[in-house]
Design a protein around this nucleic acid. Structure first.
Lengths: 249, 249
DNA sequence: CTTCAAAAACTGGTATGACCAGTGGCTCCC
DNA sequence: GGGAGCCACTGGTCATACCAGTTTTTGAAG
């Protein structure tokens, strides 16, 4: 294995094992290079690797410091690339919500239009399970409810697309549950929206189902955006991402 | 901000936006250094950062490759279940068009809202190419035009989803071209719709762009449905060649 | 003595060029 | 045809010099 990798692992273990506390300063690159008997280049590469993992932060002219580790959401493996990607780019959450707004709207529309009695039965089952579960404990009933509606759309392409986004969807549902549900008025609003979606589909009212489903996703998106701007969101901020969203060529 | 950070961010963005697919090879360090006009050291540091985040994998002597991290909807394989499903059931075409109506509407909306001057330039290029090409010969220009708009949406999730449906999309575009364009009034209508979409995006009018784009897909869908009922529909084989994708950011 | 600005001594960031070490294709010889 | 070796790639490491922020030291002015 490459030396830079070994060094990054050694440093990470050192930090995680308590040898170095958060906010604590790491020896300078030149010192590390001398003590470990390697060139400064490999030290820098190792540090950049840790930087990518969010283990350390580096400030020009000052040095590198152990990053203060934030409380992370359970349930999902925080080390998975998807999670890291997601944490690095909270904007991805809103990107997904933008897409979900359209797709779930269409799904609800088609479900209300095409659902068979079996579909309706499944949706009812998922809905009652959603209502009876404490939303703080698990995001899965929420996701199952949405999924039941999608499957009732009888559009294999739609099912396939949303299925491909399942992992990402679970993340956002998780994020919304973790951030929105603790606030009672939010929880009530969302619950009421679920109820209205359910009713619209059961009543086989496609237009209403689409409208309500879309506004539901939009509501979640807006609420999350509001929370994010307050800086209290559970999702991590990008480390040093460019301030402007524009991708300058 | 440090150059290595900017580069790592640009590369990550490029990957997220679908410019680089999983398992795809990244240009060599020396090439990147030359093309981006920086030293090889900063390239290596940027790559190590992405490596730490699990975005890429590097193999000694071979190169660096995009790690498969996003949920994959790789229907590029003509043998994928969805493709096979399509061949047996042309109804899938209308299923896809239902989904496309939503996604392309959203794409046009976001493109009109967020497109940079570079995006607008690309869209214009694709549009003029579309206008100057005999639509009977190739479905590519048509698809490229739609794709340019999607990429201008700056929503990686949207780009990813539609990219996963690329082959299927090409198939429908091909089908619509083959079936609709031979009829002059159809060809004119579609051409006019493309023009209006183009104008709405260029005028940065999101609402209009969405409305026109949606009605465009809807029009194609309805027209195809009408033709299908006459029993004269043509459905060709999917496109073979790999799409050329610019790797330069 | 205190004050405060210049200078020195840190820190990380970048550039250059050289060389080592795996990988794969190509040629040439058997 | 088949293998051995060469050669042109790839990433991995090293050394050195310099640029750019930050902190400390210094030294002269008040």
């Amino acid at each position: 294995m490459a030396i830079s990798q070994e060094i990054s692992y050694r440093l990470e273990r050192l930090i995680l094992d308590g040898g170095l506390a958060p906010e604590q300063k790491i020896p300078s690159e030149r010192q590390l290079a001398t003590r470990l008997g390697v060139s400064r280049a490999v030290i820098r590469e190792a540090l950049h690797e840790l930087q990518g993992r969010g283990v350390i932060e580096t400030r020009h002219g000052k040095g590198s410091f152990v990053a203060s580790m934030l409380p992370r959401t359970d349930d999902l493996d925080p080390q998975s690339p998807l999670m890291l990607l997601f944490e690095g780019h909270p904007r991805t959450l809103f990107d997904l919500l933008e897409v979900r707004e359209q797709l779930e709207g269409q799904a609800a529309y088609l479900a209300a239009k095409r659902a068979t009695t079996l579909d309706l039965h499944r949706i009812t089952k998922a809905y009652t399970a959603l209502e009876q579960t404490d939303p703080l404990t698990n995001a899965r009933p929420d996701h199952n409810f949405h999924q039941a509606i999608v499957e009732a759309s009888h559009n294999p392409v739609l099912v396939h697309v949303l299925n491909g986004l399942k992992n990402l969807m679970l993340l956002t549902v998780q994020a919304s549950v973790a951030n929105l549900n603790p606030r009672e008025e939010m929880r009530n609003k969302i619950s009421r929206q679920h109820k209205r979606i359910y009713q619209a589909v059961m009543a086989k009212n496609p237009e209403a189902a689409r409208r309500i489903a879309m506004s539901h996703v939009r509501f979640v998106s807006d609420a999350m955006r509001g929370i994010e701007q307050q800086g209290t969101a559970i999702i991590r901020e990008p480390f040093n991402g460019p301030a402007s969203v524009a991708t300058s060529p």
